[in-house]
Design a protein around this nucleic acid. Structure first.
Length: 280
DNA sequence: CAGTGGCCCTGAGCGC
DNA sequence: TGCGCTCAGGGCCACT
């Protein structure tokens, strides 16, 4: 489910409310992608800091109160996988079969619901150490980092023969564009998704990065995409799916030129594009 | 080392 | 209604 916009919308929907909350307990359900890597009981009494996002991961810093102030006590790195969502509410709803984490605090319960369990909750001593460092090591730059340019894409992709769409999705140069937004950004930039990444000219790299930023920014603005069930931590759905130009529109007319949107498979994922508007 | 495909897991939707 | 098949927003890892 969640690409960068959904993760960011989720973050924004509970970060303020959970800031400063005191952890009472951490309850885990069925195993997720990786084990927690710490004793859940050890988290009791810690205070939740400012929730951060890195790529499609969320980082919940935890601190322990000492006489002289607070001392970092690691944090939880959370990934929503394909089907995960977080809710934060004071009402203690019954634990469902797909609820695999409850972070119980004095302000409410942060709950991860994830039917497919591709998601993860991992304790790490900090963002740049332990499991968090390992998982974040391969990530590319943040799309909204102003110092990132089309020239960076151009340089990083030089010589790469794989198709630009799966390369963009791999996220080792710029993070955040999953299947929906990679398709949408390539449409907006007028680039054929089958084009080898290394064949993109410098100006087209500029245009692609602009498109990635515009698509992600717009999706965050309207609350993300709710294809099946995405909801933020308030339980509110997003609306971006209503304005996709190509994603999920196989056979329907291109909104620009009217020719039917095509669907192909690249790296085991569906790619939607307009063969007229998106050029080689 | 770049590129490809398998795989983790569950549910929804569709054709028969 | 039920069965079996395909597909789904991600990403790690083994293999070539």
């Amino acid at each position: 489910m969640p690409e960068l916009p959904e993760v960011e919308v989720t973050r924004q929907s509970f970060a303020d409310r959970i800031l400063g909350a005191r952890v009472a307990a951490l309850r885990l359900g069925k195993p997720l992608r990786w084990p927690l890597g710490a004793d859940p009981a050890g988290l009791a009494g810690t205070l939740v800091g400012a929730v951060q996002r890195r790529g499609k991961y969320l980082w919940l810093p935890l601190a322990r109160q000492e006489r002289a102030g607070t001392e970092p006590a690691g944090g939880l790195l959370i990934h929503l996988g394909m089907s995960g969502s977080l809710s934060f509410s004071s009402a203690s709803a019954a634990v469902g079969v797909h609820d695999h984490m409850d972070l119980i605090t004095d302000r409410g319960v942060l709950r991860l619901t994830d039917p497919r369990r591709f998601g993860a909750v991992v304790w790490s001593p900090s963002l740049d150490a332990g499991m968090a460092a390992r998982l974040l090591a391969g990530l590319g730059r943040e799309p909204f980092d102003d110092t990132l340019t089309g020239a960076d894409l151009h340089a990083a992709w030089r010589g790469r023969r794989a198709a630009v769409k799966p390369v963009l999705m791999a996220g080792d140069v710029v993070v955040g564009a999953g299947n929906i937004y990679a398709c949408e950004a390539l449409f907006m930039a007028g680039i054929d998704p089958r084009l080898p990444a290394g064949r993109l000219s410098r100006p087209r790299c500029d245009r692609l990065l602009d498109a990635v930023r515009a698509v992600l920014r717009r999706a965050v603005e309207v609350g993300g995409s709710s294809l099946r069930d995405f909801k933020d931590a308030h339980g509110d759905p997003g609306a971006f799916q209503l304005e996709t130009r190509v994603y999920g529109r196989e056979g329907q007319p291109c909104r620009v030129c009217g020719s039917p949107v095509r669907r192909i498979v690249q790296a085991q994922r569906s790619t939607f594009f307009c063969a007229v508007c998106q050029k080689r």
